[in-house]
Each structure stands twice: as structure tokens, then as C-alpha cells.
Design a protein around this nucleic acid. Structure first.
Lengths: 200, 200
DNA sequence: GTCTATAATTAGATAGAC
DNA sequence: GTCTATCTAATTATAGAC
């Protein structure tokens, strides 16, 4: 009974952690749906079931909230690592399937949030660019030793961005409703060809 | 000297046409850069060098301005028609090259505006979806007579959306700086394979 | 930590003079 | 057609009680 707000020793999780988490979840959902400017901290607070002032208490200001929402330090590294552990063989299908399964799972994928958002001109797009470069392009290019490794990896970025936008942002048919297996087979082959196929 | 504001017979172009055009140009640029909610009509008016009230005079409200900015009736039909006139042979390269040349020309492409915008949930994305369905998917699928025609056309949508987003929205390297010829060759082959290649 | 004000700013939209 | 002035509503952000 003396543990619920004791400052030094957390009785549960310092008692504000779950509120903070709910705010983050709500922020990811709304930023993804309505973009940065289209999302109000009031709406986030309402969605999270807390007071608007709490959001500022936790994250300082709206930009801080956004930064926390799209921060993906140690977000999906387990799945991503598994993609590259198998080497080049069959990597096309693995990368497509991983992307699909992660985004279908409706864990708010930073990819979708960043694609639909953008505070000013630079902030968000730079973030997304760096994320793609670091997490995808860099690791893919490292597996190749051809002189056009960067371009081949870039072609894969086109495939993955296109898939994400077509299926989750624009929701164009029949891509939006296609099964994970179908897309994995078809786009996986394309990705594989971009990486290991003969240059045309 | 009696012609500058005569209502029935336009002496020049009813004298407000160029203002309207400047507003539209400014709107396209700002909507593309900052999205719908991130763009204020005041900013559009300032960019266009007119008074904010003029924007409402011309377009009624902000949504009307947006609708006019992304309206692409008879926008680029000449170029698009040329893609399909040549039949299936080499259509991959033609569609990629046409897209690149049109968007590089920095004519505010509705594709870029719509990709970065989205008033609420539905309005814009529905518009973009319908545009893609009508202008690309439909015409591509019509050229094919395989049972998976729709899926093949959908795969092309993934390629084109991915290219547009990677090169013009996120500007990820080396796609953003690659030459039109390089991209046309590489992605054209992929698109061609998606359409006429053997199903894997 | 959580909530109740409330300050300060800004946005969309309108009325009306010229 | 174009501009000035203004109204209304919503938003970010803060101060402070509990």
C-alpha cells in the first residue's frame, strides 16, 4: 500500500508508464492516418483517454511527441536481422514477407507514419531517408560485391516503398487485398532479380 | 480602354484569370511540400502575391482550392496515350520514361501532391486511387488477356508508385540522382517482366 | 501524475468598401 | 476583381491546484 507513488522505488512502473504508452500508441495511429499537421495533441489525448496537458508533460511539445512516436530504436531488429542472416539466397522473398507481416500486424510501422507525415520540409523526410539508408540500402549493398550494388539496392527500395504505399497508404486494388503469399511470391521474385539477376 | 472589365466580352482574359492561375500554381507547390493540413490559404495567397480573400473568392473554401489544385482533367493525356499506342512491346520502358520525364519537368504532378496530402482519411486517397485505377491499371489490364491481368497491372502500380515516392517524395539515393536513362532501362525491364513475363 | 483553467496565437471564413 | 477589417473557432502551450 505504500508503493504506489514512492519516487525512488517503482511499485509497478512509476505509475505513469502505461499512460505514456497509450499516448504513444494513439499518436502513432493518428499521425499515420492524418499526418503531422492534421493531428492535434487534443485528439491524441482523447484517443489515449488522458488529458491533453499530460501529453505536454510527457513529451514537452508536439514535435517531441512526433519524434517519440517515430523513434524506432530497437523496434523491429529481430525480424530484420533474420532477413540478412540467410545470405543472398531467397532474400527477395524474405524481405518482402517480413515487410508485409510487420505492417499487416498493424504494429504502427514507422514506415507508414513517416510516409504520410512530414512536419516541415526536411525533418521527417530526412528521418525516413536515413532510416531506409541505414536499415535497408546499407545492409543490402553490403551483401553484394558488384559495382552497381548501390543501384541494385536502390531498386529494392523502389519495390518496398511502392509496396508499402500501394497497399497501406493509397490502398489500390488488387494489391491492398492480395494475400501475403501471393505478394511474397510475385514481388519476392522481382526483388531477387533486382539484386542477383543479370543486368539488362 | 473600355475592354478591361467588360463583363460579357473578355478584353484580355476577364482580368482575373492570371491571378487565379498564380493561386493554383502556388497551391500545387505548397500542397505538395506541406500536405493539406500543413498548408494555409494565407500562405498560398502570399506565395501567389494576392490577398487571402481572393482565394476564397475564387474557390469558395480550402477544400475547393485543393480540389482545383489536384484536378487533372485533360492534364497529361497526350503523353499517356502514347504509352499505350505502341502495344505491349516495349511498354515497360515507355511507361517508366513517360512518368520520369513528366515529373522531372517539375510541372506540379498531381501524383506527388496526392501522395503527400490527404485532407481527412478518404477524400484524397480515394481520388488518387481512382486516378491510378482509371489511368494506369485499367488501361494496362485491358492490354492483357491473361487471367491474372489485374494482379500484373497491380504489380506495375507498385513499381510506379515506388519510383515516384523514392525519387520525388523521400528522395532516397541513388534513385533520386540517377539518370532518366538508367532508371528507364532498369525499371522498364522490371515493369515489362511484370506484364509479359512468365508467372513465377 | 493528473486535471482545471487560461494565455497567446493562428486558421478558416465572411461582409463590405472601392 | 481586389483589398481591409473582422468574427469565430480551434490549437499549442503554460501555470498552478490537487
Amino acid at each position: 500500500m505504500t508503493e504506489h507513488t514512492s519516487p525512488g522505488r517503482p511499485g509497478r512502473w512509476r505509475s505513469g508508464a502505461q499512460s505514456r504508452q497509450r499516448v504513444l500508441d494513439a499518436a502513432r495511429e493518428l499521425f499515420q492516418r492524418n499526418g503531422y499537421a492534421g493531428t492535434t495533441v487534443r485528439a491524441v489525448a482523447t484517443e489515449a483517454g488522458v488529458d491533453p496537458a499530460m501529453v505536454f508533460y510527457f513529451f514537452g511539445n508536439k514535435q517531441g511527441l512526433f519524434a517519440a512516436a517515430v523513434d524506432m530504436s530497437a523496434q523491429l531488429p529481430p525480424a530484420i536481422d533474420a532477413i540478412f542472416d540467410g545470405g543472398l539466397d531467397g532474400i527477395g522473398e524474405r524481405v518482402v514477407r517480413t515487410l508485409l507481416e510487420n505492417m499487416d500486424k498493424s504494429e504502427r510501422a514507422p514506415l507508414a507514419i513517416l510516409t504520410r507525415s512530414g512536419p516541415g520540409d526536411d525533418q521527417t523526410e530526412t528521418l525516413l531517408r536515413q532510416y531506409i539508408d541505414r536499415e535497408i540500402t546499407g545492409r543490402l549493398a553490403a551483401l553484394l560485391d558488384t559495382p552497381d550494388a548501390a543501384l541494385r539496392a536502390g531498386m529494392v527500395n523502389v519495390q518496398l516503398l511502392g509496396l508499402a504505399v500501394a497497399r497501406y497508404v493509397v490502398r489500390v486494388e488488387p494489391i491492398a487485398s492480395a494475400s501475403v503469399d501471393e505478394l511474397t511470391t510475385r514481388l519476392g521474385a522481382v526483388v531477387q532479380h533486382c539484386l542477383t539477376g543479370s543486368a539488362s
